[in-house]
Amino acid sequence: MIKARRKIGFHVLLKSRFWVIFFFGAILFGMRLTKGAGYLEFYSLLLKPILPGTAQREWIQQGEKIEQHLRLKLLEEDNIRLRRALSLKEFNSDKRISAAVISRASRSWWQQLEVNKGAKDGVLKGQTVIGPGGVIGLVDSTTPLTSRVRLLTDPGHQIGVWVDRTKRHGILIGMGTNRPKLIFLNKNSFVKIGDAVTTSPASTLLPPNLIIGVIQFIDENALPAPYAIVQLTASPEAIDWVQVLKNNG
């Protein structure tokens, strides 16, 4: 019996086997083209439930914090030991007196604060007063229960400061506004806008390395010495609590 020849045509494409081969080939080609991206994505999705989670990240961060804290403590102890050897002022964070601002005249002819801690609590004239952001002034006078703080912005108020990056000393003079003037002692200041101004680490009057402000304007050609305008980081107008540093009395 003679079998009829199978017709060759498009109907072959509709056969299921062809499509299986075609899709398998396409997947292989795609995998080759994407360098196995699909596989990797799938693998990562599979691994997600067993990957280190937030808890583990927190443990690591906590460990890092502890390490940094210990390093800071060691460095502070080292710093105190060296400062003692050089007979310089120490900065000890334990010797602070928290005080509330009971009166404020931060924009008047006299720029001052009255705080509710006085001689009875160990506050002495000349001690440094800091607020959130940095130094805000020095104690001008005390009564048994209160102290008067002369702000850094008070016209004519002068303190010695330095720019940490360039290691240049200067005198910060209050000009009545929130931007005191910094007159440098050197002919060339080499400072840039944005440099931090701190208390001098060589100071015998103020605790070292306390943030005061940021340089906002410089005039290198000014005579007799270059000067800069400093934007204070602490704002006395918005501070309700301050800390008096006892150790520079």
Binding site: W109, P155, I183
Partner: peptide, 27 residues
């Protein structure tokens, strides 16, 4: 106000460099 301003200028050498203080006018 003018009296206090003048006194400040006389008492503080550092304020003499710049007599026209914006702060003083403001206050």
């Amino acid at each position: 106000g003018l009296s206090i301003w003048m006194q400040k200028i006389i008492l503080h050498v550092s304020l003499r460099n710049n007599w026209f203080h914006s702060w003083s006018i403001y206050v």
